[in-house]
């Protein structure tokens, strides 16, 4: 587990938090006080609602439920930092989970199924990236188009039906634990460590921030900005493909519309995490907090039997409120 080794030995000296420019976690969390505060308040509030929120098993549950979201939100952070957008994540997730389930249903092995799903994700990432970087088409409309495309292909491929005969390999893996930590959480933590590493410890990470911050700087540095922007979307597609593994494991089937709207949760999480579509600003810890906030809110409201529809409304209102508060502060 790379993340477990990676975290503790990052001294203040060696942790180059490029994006917020702060020197440690504490400071970085302080840089997103709004969201950390919201998360804290939500946790406190749900704890006193007389539901089983604060039980250890439920805490683990939140982690498991948030894992897919984190897998989507991490690459989406990169995409937003590059002043882009990806509305196709949910639909591609559905399609990838259909593909993954179909391979399993036809007796394919789990690695084969995962490879197929990942390849599909990469394909969509490539389409998004090429259209956006090289043809300079507006990201929202390109990914709206690929959203429809993925959704359409999934419908045609399945006739709107679920694929439920996925064998026992995946459910077993999904339920597995390592040292008591459930498999989905391990995957999520590994993904987090990887993205944290990418953003803060590689040249590529600095290019991501420069895409939105000052593209001219990349040109002057002799970096091929377009090619790296395509890579940002490729990573986005790949992660969605991989997320299909957890998604199918969670719902025990492949369904053509099951991932519908996941991109909204991911967008809310990333925006709550402080990432903005301007000047290349974004942080990985922020996204983590954002994902947990969305996860806690969804879980808590579920426990209180609040309808899924109201949960969506509350997410939207929350993020708009956050943006509103921010714009107020900006005026001062």
């Amino acid at each position: 587990m790379a993340n477990m080794e990676g975290m503790p030995n990052m001294s203040i000296e060696s942790l180059p938090l490029s994006a917020p420019g702060e020197a440690n976690w504490r400071k970085m969390l302080l840089a997103i006080p709004g969201t950390s505060l919201i998360l804290l308040l939500l946790v406190l509030w749900f704890s006193f609602q007389g539901v089983d929120f604060a039980k250890p098993s439920n805490i683990v549950n939140i982690g498991i439920q948030s894992s897919v979201l984190l897998l989507l939100a991490l690459p989406l952070t990169f995409i937003l930092m590059s002043e882009g957008l990806d509305l196709s994540q949910g639909a591609v997730l559905s399609l990838a989970s259909v593909v993954l389930a179909a391979v399993l249903a036809h007796g394919g092995s789990l690695p084969l199924a995962l490879t197929a799903a990942a390849a599909l994700g990469l394909l969509f990432g490539a389409v998004n990236g090429v259209f956006i970087a090289y043809l300079q088409m507006p990201p929202f409309v390109v990914t709206l188009g690929t959203l429809g495309l993925a959704h359409g292909i999934a419908l045609v491929a399945t006739d709107g039906e679920s694929i439920t005969e996925i064998g026992s390999q995946l459910p077993r893996l999904y339920k597995a634990t390592v040292l008591g930590i459930p498999f989905p959480i391990i995957v999520a933590l590994c993904a987090y460590a990887l993205f944290h590493y990418l953003l803060y410890h590689t040249r590529f990470g600095s290019y991501v921030s420069a895409q939105g911050g000052n593209r001219e700087a990349l040109h002057l540095a002799g970096v091929n900005a377009n090619r790296h922007l395509v890579v940002v979307y490729l990573i986005g597609g790949l992660m969605v493909g991989l997320a299909a593994l957890l998604w199918v494991g969670r719902i025990s089937s492949g369904h053509p519309t099951a991932g519908h709207g996941m991109e909204f949760d991911a967008l809310v999480a990333v925006l709550l995490g402080g990432t903005r579509l301007e000047k290349g600003y974004g942080t990985m810890p922020g996204t983590l907090v954002g994902v947990l906030t969305v996860g806690v809110l969804r879980n808590g409201l579920n426990l209180m039997s609040v309808a899924a529809s109201w949960q969506v409304v509350s997410l939207g209102v929350l993020v708009l409120a956050a943006l509103w508060v921010e714009s107020r502060q900006g005026e001062k």
Binding site: P16, L17, S18, A19, P20, G21, R203, S206, Y207, S209, A210, G213, N214, E216, A217, L218, L220, A221, G222, V223, K279, G280, Y281, G282
Partner: peptide, 22 residues
């Protein structure tokens, strides 16, 4: 007169952008 710094990267990253020692 127009600067070519990336606003949210730190100074070291900015100075060595594209040439960071690896």
């Amino acid at each position: 007169q127009e600067f070519t710094l990336v606003p949210h990267l730190n100074l070291a990253q900015n100075i060595f952008l594209g040439r960071q020692p690896v």
